[in-house]
Design a protein around this nucleic acid. Structure first.
Length: 427
RNA sequence: GGAGACGUCGCAUAGUCUGGUCUAGUGCGCAUCCCUGCUAAGGAUGUGACGGGGCAACCCGUCCGUGGGUUCAAAUCCCACCGUCUCCGCCA
C-alpha cells in the first residue's frame, strides 16, 4: 500500500512511477479524488458523532421533565450519525479498492519499460567453452537421469506435469545446497526459520501477491488458505501488526520452505526438466529495516546472493529489472542469472526486491522511533533454490556424464568431489 | 469431533451479573523530575495505537479478540466467528 500523505503532497512522483511501469498515471488522480471525498465525509461523521455523544450523556442526568425532549433530539441525531457513518464507510471502501490496486512507487534509477528493458549491471565468471573441451554438453535432465538424480516421468505419473522426484544423489545435492545456504545466512546474522506454507488470505494479500499475479497462486478453497510461492510470505506475515525495535539494525530471517506455483500462462515454456515446476524448495532471506537503510540492505542481500553463486561455482550476470517487470510490492529488483550452456542463455537463480514500506503498510509492521511509530521497509532475496541444480549440473558436467561438485558444496556431501553416473531406479 | 473456561490501553489485573458517573481504575514496568548523596528507599508527573483538523503546544473521532445486532447510549446485553487453556473422543 502506498503512502497517501506523500501521494497528496507530491503526486508527480507517483505519476512518473506509473509511467515507468507502463501503467496509468491517471490512477493517481482517481486516488486523490477518492481520498479527498473520504476525508470530507469522515469529518462530517465525526462532527455529528461528537454531538450525539454529548446529547446521549446528558440523557442520564436529565430531569424527568426534560427527558423526553432530549430523547427525541438524541433519536434524531442517531439517525443522522448512522447515515453519515455509512457514507464515510462507503467512501473509505472506494478509496481502499483504488489503493489496493496501486503498485509500489519505483525508486530513482530503475530502468523504465517492460520485461526486456532490464539493464545488465555486470557479468561474473566466464562460461566454459565446451567446443574447445571437445564435447557437447548434456542438458540438466539428461545428466540428472544418468546420475539417478532426477525422475520427471514418475513425477508426472504421480502428480502431473511439472512435478518431479529428486532421487539418491539428487536429493542429497539439494539438501547440500540448501544447507550451504542456511550456513551462509547464519554467518550473515540471519535467524533460520522453517515457515508455514499455508497462509491466510490477509497475509497473502498483504505481501502483494493477490494483485496482478493472483492466478499464479494455489488456493485451498475448502479452508480459505493459500499455498505460498515463497517463504517471503510467511516471513513478512511473521511480524504483521507488530511494532518492532530496529534500533540495533535490521531484523534478518532466513526461511526454508517448500514453494508452490501454478505456472498458469507458462504453457509450453521450460517444459523439460526441473527449470519451471509447481513445487520446489528455497532458502530465502528476509529483512525488516528502517527505511533509510533499505537501499544499503538491498545491496547487502545482493552481495550475499553472489557469495552463494560463487560457492556453487556458477558464471552469472546481475540485472536491474525494469519497472514494468517488478512485482506489485517491489520498488527495485535485482536478479542474478546463471549461464545455461545447453540453451545459450541466462537463467534466473536469485531475485532480491526492496519493497520499501509497501508490504509493511498493508501488514501493519511498524518500528518505534523517538518521534513515534512508522512503517518499516521489507526486503527479500534468494539464497538457493531447487532450480540451482539445473545450473550446477550443466556447468560442472564432465564428458562421461559425471559432475564435478563445486568446492563450496563438498563439505555438505561428505567431501564428495564427483557425482558419478548410477544405475537408474528401475521397477 | 464433543463439553467447559477465558480473551480489557507493554505485563498483570478491576470493571461485565444490575448499560449512562468508564472521558476504562489499580499495581508492575518504563521515562522525566524532585528529595536524598551514593549501586537503597520515598515523592511528583507522564506513560498506547490509528485516522482527521491546526500541522507547534491543542482539539475531535475510532479502538476493551474480530465482525454484526439491540439501544438515545454498549467493555457491559444478544448473535456469529477467531484464538488460548482444560477435559473427553478419534487419529498418528
Amino acid at each position: 500500500m502506498i503512502d497517501l500523505k506523500s501521494l497528496r503532497e507530491d503526486p508527480d512522483v507517483a505519476r512518473a512511477s506509473q509511467r515507468a511501469r507502463g501503467e496509468s498515471p491517471g490512477l493517481v488522480d482517481r486516488v486523490l479524488d477518492a481520498d479527498a471525498r473520504r476525508r470530507a465525509l469522515l469529518t462530517e461523521f465525526e462532527r455529528l458523532r461528537a454531538e450525539q455523544k454529548e446529547v446521549s450523556r446528558s440523557v442520564g442526568k436529565a430531569s424527568p421533565e426534560e427527558r423526553s425532549a432530549i430523547l427525541g433530539r438524541a433519536k434524531e441525531l442517531s439517525d443522522h450519525v448512522k447515515a453519515a457513518e455509512a457514507d464515510a464507510d462507503r467512501a473509505r471502501d472506494d478509496l481502499d479498492r483504488l489503493v489496493a490496486g496501486f503498485p509500489n512507487i519505483v525508486l530513482d534509477g530503475v530502468p523504465a519499460g517492460g520485461e526486456d528493458d532490464y539493464v545488465v549491471l555486470r557479468t561474473e565468471g566466464s562460461p566454459r567453452d565446451f567446443a574447445a573441451e571437445g564435447f557437447t554438453p548434456r542438458d540438466h535432465l539428461e545428466i540428472g537421469e544418468l546420475l539417478g538424480a532426477i525422475d520427471t516421468e514418475r513425477g508426472a505419473k504421480v502428480s502431473g506435469a511439472r512435478f518431479y522426484y529428486l532421487t539418491g544423489i539428487g536429493a542429497r545435492l539439494e539438501l547440500a545446497l540448501l544447507n550451504a545456504a542456511i550456513d551462509k545466512a547464519l554467518a550473515a546474522g540471519f535467524t533460520p526459520m522453517i515457515t508455514p506454507t499455508l497462509v491466510k488470505p490477509e497475509i497473502m494479500a498483504g505481501t502483494g501477491f493477490l494483485g496482478a499475479h493472483a492466478d499464479e497462486i494455489y488456493r485451498l478453497e475448502a479452508d480459505d488458505l493459500y499455498l505460498v510461492g515463497t517463504s517471503e510470505v510467511a516471513l513478512a506475515g511473521y511480524h504483521s501488526r507488530e511494532i518492532l525495535d530496529l534500533s540495533a539494525g535490521p531484523k534478518r530471517y532466513a526461511g526454508w520452505s517448500a514453494c508452490y506455483r501454478r505456472e498458469a500462462g507458462s504453457y509450453g515454456k521450460d517444459t523439460r526438466g526441473i527449470i519451471r515446476v509447481h513445487q520446489f524448495h528455497k532458502v530465502e532471506m528476509f529483512s525488516y529495516a528502517p527505511i533509510e537503510e533499505a537501499e544499503a540492505e538491498h545491496a547487502r542481500l545482493l552481495a550475499w546472493e553472489e557469495e552463494m553463486l560463487a560457492a556453487a561455482g556458477l558464471p552469472y550476470r546481475v540485472i536491474d529489472t525494469a519497472a514494468g517487470d517488478l512485482g506489485t510490492s517491489a520498488a527495485r529488483k535485482f536478479d542474478c542469472e546463471a549461464w545455461l550452456p545447453t540453451q545459450g542463455r541466462y537463467l534466473e537463480l536469485t531475485s532480491t526486491s526492496n519493497c520499501t514500506t509497501y508490504q509493511a503498510r498493508r501488514l501493519g509492521i511498524r518500528e518505534r522511533t523517538l518521534s513515534g511509530t512508522r512503517p518499516v521497509a521489507t526486503l527479500n532475496g534468494t539464497l538457493a533454490t531447487t532450480r540451482w541444480l539445473v545450473a550446477i549440473l550443466e556447468n560442472h558436467q564432465l564428458p562421461d556424464g559425471s559432475v564435478r561438485v563445486p568446492e563450496g558444496l563438498r563439505g555438505y556431501l561428505g567431501g564428495l568431489e564427483v557425482l558419478e553416473p548410477a544405475a537408474p531406479v528401475t521397477a
